[in-house]
Amino acid sequence: MKTKSSVRFFARAAHLDVDIELADVIMISIKQGMLNTEDHEYIFDKVDIEKHPRLAERKISHTSRRHAAEHLKATLCEAFIKNIYEDTTQYFQEIIDAAAKNGLDPQRLIGEHQTNFKANEVLQAGGWDKVVSMVAESVFRKLLNERDTKKLLEKINIKLKLDVSSTTIDNALPYFEIRHLLVHNDGKADKKFCDAFPDFCTSIGKKIKLDAKLIQDARTAISALIEEFDQQIVSKSIVASNQLQP
């Protein structure tokens, strides 16, 4: 069995994989000259000046086509790292919510993340499950606001009384931190990142290269993280049976 949240996570991840694969197919097609003929007036045969004015301005050359293809793939690789992080946080938010509704000890759920609601907010929630969801979401947001992905994962591990390996968490961390660099530092490695993950950093201030190996490694490490959390969540009955599927 697995949680419905993990099924949704891996379905979303599969869509990201397809995007990367499609970009690769387009790049191969461009390099083999399958999208352009010698006598066409634009960079690619199907360019329409009304619909594609920026492409219509591009120089007609093999180098220009290659650069366009490489930029497309790089953009999708960057989107992959950003989106898989968002999908991971979505998974954990759903699990915290489901665990709270399944009777997770309130002291464990809240811990040091005390939260308060106004009476009208509680009354407007529309039922006890909605109130529980409000509390669970508030706790999760407080965890996110600490801006420390390692602590986020470790605290979820503790709150749910799981025994997820620290190695599994550490293996996924560099890719989450690369996402932070992409969002906040234009993808450039800073000293903190280089000190923490020297294998991923060639020099401070240089952009992290999002090549095929890094993307595959990220997919493998983050998938292993979700799988290990999910296996223990299921085996320890952290969420209700209606949140599971074969």
Rank of each mutant, 00 (worst) to 15 (best):
213 K>I: 10
182 L>Y: 01
245 Q>K: 10
117 F>G: 09
41 E>P: 03
213 K>S: 14
48 D>Y: 02
221 A>E: 08
120 N>V: 13
23 A>S: 12
30 I>S: 00
185 N>F: 06
122 V>L: 14
9 F>D: 05
225 L>T: 08
46 K>G: 11
44 F>G: 05
96 I>C: 03
31 K>Q: 11
72 L>A: 13
64 S>L: 07
62 H>P: 00
222 I>L: 13
84 I>K: 01
91 Y>K: 05
14 A>K: 02
73 K>H: 10
16 L>V: 03
74 A>K: 05
107 Q>T: 13
26 I>C: 02
108 R>V: 10
149 T>E: 08
243 Q>K: 07
62 H>A: 15
240 A>Q: 12
165 S>K: 04
206 K>C: 09
98 A>P: 03
25 V>I: 11
106 P>G: 10
127 G>F: 02
61 S>L: 12
244 L>A: 06
176 F>W: 06
51 K>R: 14
140 F>T: 00
171 N>A: 14
171 N>M: 06
13 A>K: 05
146 E>G: 12
106 P>H: 11
110 I>D: 05
102 N>I: 10
6 S>T: 11
1 M>A: 15
176 F>I: 08
186 D>Q: 02
53 P>K: 08
14 A>N: 01
75 T>F: 07
115 T>E: 14
58 R>Q: 08
205 G>P: 02
135 V>P: 05
144 L>C: 08
146 E>W: 00
146 E>M: 06
99 A>R: 00
193 F>P: 00
243 Q>W: 05
156 I>T: 07
77 C>A: 15
90 Q>I: 10
178 I>A: 05
199 D>L: 07
241 S>Q: 09
228 E>G: 03
190 D>N: 15
221 A>Q: 02
26 I>D: 00
209 K>N: 14
72 L>N: 03
60 I>K: 06
82 K>N: 12
153 L>G: 02
158 I>A: 14
184 H>A: 09
82 K>I: 15
215 I>P: 04
131 V>D: 03
141 R>K: 08
191 K>L: 15
189 A>G: 10
74 A>D: 12
33 G>V: 12
25 V>T: 08
190 D>L: 05
23 A>L: 06
204 I>M: 12
217 D>C: 11
103 G>D: 10
129 D>K: 07
214 L>Q: 04
233 I>E: 04
97 D>Q: 09
160 L>V: 07
60 I>S: 10
6 S>Q: 06
221 A>K: 01
76 L>Y: 01
26 I>T: 01
70 E>G: 05
19 D>R: 04
48 D>I: 12
134 M>P: 03
161 K>D: 15
225 L>V: 13
74 A>N: 12
48 D>T: 09
227 E>M: 07
222 I>M: 10
238 I>K: 01
174 P>T: 11
99 A>M: 11
145 N>I: 04
236 K>A: 11
6 S>G: 09
190 D>V: 04
31 K>W: 04
113 H>A: 13
54 R>D: 14
57 E>P: 03
